[in-house]
Amino acid sequence: MITDLFSATVLIGILASGIRLATPYLYAAIGETFGQKSGVLNLGVEGQMLLGCFAAFYVALTTGNLWLGLLAAMVVGALMGLAMAYVTVNLQAQQGISGIGFYLFGLGMSELLFQRLMGTVETVKGFPKLSIPVLSGIPGVGEIFFNQNILVYGAYLLVPLAWFVLNKTTLGLKIRSVGENPDAADSLGVSVARVRYFTIILGGTLSGIAGASLSIALLNVFQQNMTSGLGFIAVALVYFGAWRPFGVLGGALLFSMVNSLQLWIQVLGIPVPSDIAVMMPYVLTILVLVATVSRVRAPSALTKPFEREN
């Protein structure tokens, strides 16, 4: 039965669903990478995603326009980011605690709005599969990579883009310097506050898209607490990926692939108890994290509020 795992159908199935499952993680974790690179830990990702999920779904349901839904998720995410930025930058709040506050707010608010505006679980027609001409025709590879919906492609394009912005542009240099040594950045005329506002709002916007990718592209339903911890895993993936977009990509893919592998293990009837199978992605993630944790260090100013010395 183990040999069944290596048939073409199964391998294609595992890879294609791994690619899909990684999508929301990528948006949320890349957004979080920007924030953490500038020295702000945002634990409210889950809450931003939930509100993004709901906003996208509700707008798509009522207007019938998926792009308006996506826009709504981005706006809601950005607003949550703005609030988070005010609390962490201006009020210099303890970031972990206030992040949890934002998570709870997003969780409660999305539930409340769902109850008041919808009342029951409904479905929408989400973004359809978009086959890339020619490439989608390649056997195997085409099915895995080039026969997904547009938000999946977007997530993977975001990775090199984020790498480029962080490492090859002045903006990226400012972000990194604010996260490593805000005093020095400040003395060179970089506005620490402005950079952090930018990264946190960007992070919120991307979390909003992560939510939309669930509710109007991958699942096409809204249910209370439908992210079920996904946003927190995204935060962990930033550590896992050592604050590098491609590292985050690797972590997201590893986690998602192992998750889809365990689904197939059960379907093929390979005799592994289901409880053990569902643990696999988490156990593997912890093992990799333990094995690699010492190789890089976090941004020096991470979680430290900046106060200009007079």
């Binding site: 499952l21 439908m226 079920s228 059960q266 409880d275």
Partner: peptide, 13 residues
């Protein structure tokens, strides 16, 4: 084929 996903809430999985 039976798939227990290990969660009552993980819609994505």
């Amino acid at each position: 084929n039976v798939n227990y996903i290990g969660s009552f809430s993980d819609v994505a999985l």
